[in-house]
């Protein structure tokens, strides 16, 4: 029972976070500079989520070239740039990582 309430509370708070600005959308500033600022949300949040996934292993930094995820991620970046296709990017990155892991 307590667990159910805990889950409901967490979900409720998360929902309110997502609903906040949408609920107040009538009161958001309507000038183009504000709109231009919001253009930066997807690239910055995604970059902030990706960087630690690649460079942090077991809660410590790993910038050395023997961190295979760096190379796999670099190949995935190239694949994403040239194909502009999500499936191709995931396939390239995973296959690169598996190949590197089996060689080294």
């Amino acid at each position: 029972m307590e667990l159910l309430i805990l889950i409901l509370v967490c979900s409720g708070i998360t929902f309110l976070l997502r609903y906040s600005f949408i609920a107040a959308s009538k009161y958001l500033p309507k000038n183009p500079h504000f709109q231009d600022m919001l253009r930066f949300v997807p690239p910055t949040v995604l970059a902030a989520l990706i960087a630690p996934e690649i460079f942090v292993q077991n809660s410590s930094f790993d910038f050395a070239p023997d961190n295979l995820r760096i190379w796999a991620a670099a190949l995935a970046f190239l694949a994403a740039y040239f194909t502009r296709n999500v499936l191709a990017t995931i396939a390239t990155g995973m296959i690169a990582l598996w190949c590197l892991q089996s060689f080294f």
Partner: peptide, 23 residues
């Protein structure tokens, strides 16, 4: 690792301007 790869694909496709790459 596949989640990071998904985000990489989304990131590359969301970049249109030089300022966005720097950001």
């Amino acid at each position: 690792f596949s989640v990071a790869l998904t985000f990489i694909a989304l990131l590359v496709m969301s970049l249109q301007r030089k300022s966005e790459i720097i950001a």
